[in-house]
């Protein structure tokens, strides 16, 4: 396992606060420009979003103004993010996940699921002697089981893809 990288929690939270402030400004500005305010007896669609923008600005400022109360503060001073091989693995699993549902409308749920299961099991397995054939069989069994249970039995609508006529 690669050692994790440590980051300061207060700067990270302040950065989040800054992003939230930016979001509040953009959201408030868009509301002001595009939505109607109405009248007191007939309030328009802008009233609530304006209140939400103000609340978001307030909460962003409260995050920006946070101060640690010393070593006894219940909030930790740092947080860890994966690094090296662990980070690579996490990003690869995320990428495989994104590719999975981009490909799903074309390949269909069952084939896309089987391919994603195989890729992610391969990425997540720690065993240096892992067998691609065994993982592939496991992936296909799980994908077919899910297809039968959800799509055939429970009638869940999932993309069938271009191979629809050759499957089942």
């Amino acid at each position: 396992m690669t050692p994790a990288r440590s980051f300061g929690l207060p700067p990270a939270r302040r950065f989040t606060g800054l992003l939230a402030l930016l979001l509040a400004g953009t959201y408030g500005f868009d509301t002001w420009q595009t939505l109607s305010f109405g009248r007191w007896h007939k309030p328009g669609a802008a009233i609530f979003p304006i209140a939400v923008a103000a609340l978001m600005a307030l909460s962003a400022i409260s995050v920006l103004l946070e101060r640690r109360s010393g070593p006894d503060d219940p909030m930790p001073a740092t947080f860890a993010l994966p690094a090296g091989a662990d980070l690579r693995r996490l990003l690869l699993v995320l990428a495989a996940f994104a590719v999975y549902f981009v490909a799903m409308p074309y390949l269909g749920n069952m084939i896309a699921s089987a391919l994603f299961l195989l890729a992610s099991m391969w990425l997540l397995s720690d065993d240096p002697n892992r067998s691609i054939v065994r993982l592939a069989i496991t992936a296909v069994v799980i994908a077919v089981t899910f297809e039968v249970f959800f799509v055939r039995l429970l009638k869940v609508q999932m993309p069938a893809g271009v191979f629809k006529q050759w499957l089942f």
Binding site: V93, Y100, S125, I142, F146, F150
Partner: peptide
Amino acid sequence: YLFIPLLLVLSVIGTYSVRNSIFDVWVLL
């Protein structure tokens, strides 16, 4: 390595099935 991918697939099926929308799966991510 077995149950994480399995649950990820389950989460996609569950999310997609509510409105038949790939956009919802992007929201999930």
